[in-house]
């Protein structure tokens, strides 16, 4: 059977294999979902991309694969699905997602969240106070514009403008990074 032919895609799947996939899915879905969320930024896309990652990766993974091996393969697949997402919908090359196909160091699985957190903290620390504050309230604490305006004692319109300028200057700082 030619790989990729309709017949190969419709192959019969045995119960054992299915059970293996389900176990793989359960073991990895939360980590992959988190990984994807912080690279697309919203839940609906993160759910769809996570589903696409598993649909693409599972047939190529042996259910018996070691956990680290499976995680590395899933993450590599997630990077390429994410790169496609950005290229298809926004015409953007997200080189940092596409190129890193090497299995990451073991630390990557557990510590990635705190590494991201440190990166964001460093970025915010370089912003003027009110820019930092508006981004903290909106992005990190998840407040609405209205709530943010109240916290900062500015008008809603002001809060929106502040958020815009804060993002633009954060973007400029990120871009100038070597």
């Amino acid at each position: 059977m030619e790989p990729g032919s309709p017949a190969s895609r419709l192959r019969v799947v045995g119960d054992e294999e299915t059970a293996g996939w389900e176990a793989l899915y359960r073991a990895h879905v939360v980590a992959i979902y988190r990984f994807v969320f912080s690279r697309c930024g919203n839940r609906p896309d993160a759910e769809d991309i996570t589903a696409a990652v598993f649909l693409r990766a599972l047939p190529r993974l042996r259910p018996s694969a070691a956990e680290g091996e499976a995680r590395a393969y899933l993450r590599a697949t997630a990077r390429s699905v994410l790169a496609e997402h950005w290229a298809t919908h926004y015409g953007l090359e997200m080189a940092e997602y596409a190129e890193d196909l090497t299995p990451s160091a073991p630390a990557a699985s557990g510590d990635e969240g705190s590494a991201n957190r440190r990166r964001v903290t460093r970025l915010l620390a370089r912003l003027p106070d009110h820019y930092r504050r508006v981004l903290e309230l909106r992005f990190l604490r998840g407040l609405s514009v209205k709530e943010t305006a109240r916290e900062m004692e500015v008008t809603v319109a002001n809060a929106k403008v502040l958020q815009w300028r804060a993002l633009r200057s954060a973007a400029a700082l990120e871009e100038e990074r070597p």
Binding site: Y33, R34, F35, F37, S38, R39, C40, G41, N42, Y90, L92, M94, G113, N116, R117, R119, V120, L123, L135, F139, L140, G142, L167, R168, A170, A171, A172, E174, E175
Partner: peptide, 19 residues
């Protein structure tokens, strides 16, 4: 390019901690 930079930075601020 400025747009692109803003999309990137806004996305990167969405920490998975929120989940």
């Amino acid at each position: 390019p400025e747009d692109a930079a803003m999309l990137r930075v806004a996305t990167s601020l969405q920490l998975e901690e929120r989940l």
